[in-house]
Design a protein around this nucleic acid. Structure first.
Length: 268
DNA sequence: AGCCAGGCCCATT
DNA sequence: AATGGGCATGGC
């Protein structure tokens, strides 16, 4: 068990903002969250969260508390388009530190899909393929996923994404694609490598880089961000151009700006 | 009922 | 390099 001050992070918004799919709201002040092979409950009290978990060190790291968000948000807030979504007294929503392989699979599932359905598919994937823990299942290993077939993935609701998941799992399980090596690459080279995986395009690659590697110099452009772009620039462009313009606009911490903008737009 | 969802693949140009 | 059609499923 460990505690975190409520002024340091808004954990519930950090869970709800679309970067993670394995969590449940238990009641107004309590959530449960799963990551990799671990499990935690987060209970909010007056001025602190109490986190009870299978692995406290893992979840302390997961919350990404060592990054100084106050400084980053202060800088972002100077941009006119972020003033409203990052008010002065905001409690920071943080980009969590999640497992790289889990992000690769999860965001392949996310493509052209909606969040409630993504959560259901990933839950079934864990229940069917993940190592059994006391009363939940771990996220599956690449090897576990690679041992299945397309029919299985279709049966849990993946539709036309079934072959992408199977092929990507096989590439990683066989060692042809080295996930660990991504950590040593700069953002551009890591993105290039990710784009070789079936089911990973520019948007999914950016999500993997942002949530799995905490690279902030990216800007995932999805249908919600298209609306944001229109609000800001009053014109329509293709995703590649939108990404360029948005990174130019928001700078080195574009990924964090993106998350605030995405969450605000989706909540309208 | 019909549009949409944290888009990507592939054939064509 | 860029374009556009096709695409499983189910939430709303």
């Amino acid at each position: 068990m460990f505690e975190v001050k409520v002024k340091d992070i808004n954990i519930f918004d950090s869970l709800n903002c679309g970067q993670i799919f394995r969590f449940n709201k238990l009641d107004e002040n309590k959530y449960e969250v799963f990551s990799k092979a671990e499990y935690a409950t987060v209970t909010r009290y007056q001025d602190k969260y109490v986190i009870e978990s299978s692995n406290d060190k893992f979840f302390y790291d997961f919350l990404n508390l060592d990054v100084n968000y106050m400084a980053i948000l202060k800088g972002l807030r100077e941009n006119i388009h972020l003033k409203d979504v990052i008010p002065c007294d905001v409690v920071p929503l943080r980009i969590l530190k999640q497992d790289l392989f889990e992000m690769i699979i999860s965001f392949i599932v996310s493509a052209n899909n909606n969040i409630p359905r993504i959560k259901g598919i990933i839950k079934r994937m864990c229940d069917e393929c993940g190592e059994r823990k006391c009363d939940y299942h771990a996220f599956p290993t690449a090897k576990a996923l690679a041992s299945k077939d397309e029919e299985f993935f279709k049966s849990i609701g993946l539709g036309y994404r079934a072959p992408y998941i199977l092929k990507t799992a096989k590439l990683i399980a066989s060692g042809v694609f080295d996930v660990e090596k991504l950590k040593n690459l700069n953002t551009k080279d890591a993105e290039k490598a990710l784009l070789t995986l079936p089911g990973v395009g520019p948007k999914v690659a950016d999500c993997i880089l942002l949530f799995g590697l905490n690279r902030y110099d990216v800007f995932p452009v999805d249908t919600w961000i298209e609306k944001v772009y229109k609000d800001i620039f009053h014109k329509e462009e293709k995703p590649k151009k939108m990404r360029e313009d948005l990174i130019k606009e928001f700078g080195d911490y574009s990924g964090i700006a993106q998350q605030y903008l995405f969450y605000a737009k989706r909540g309208e």
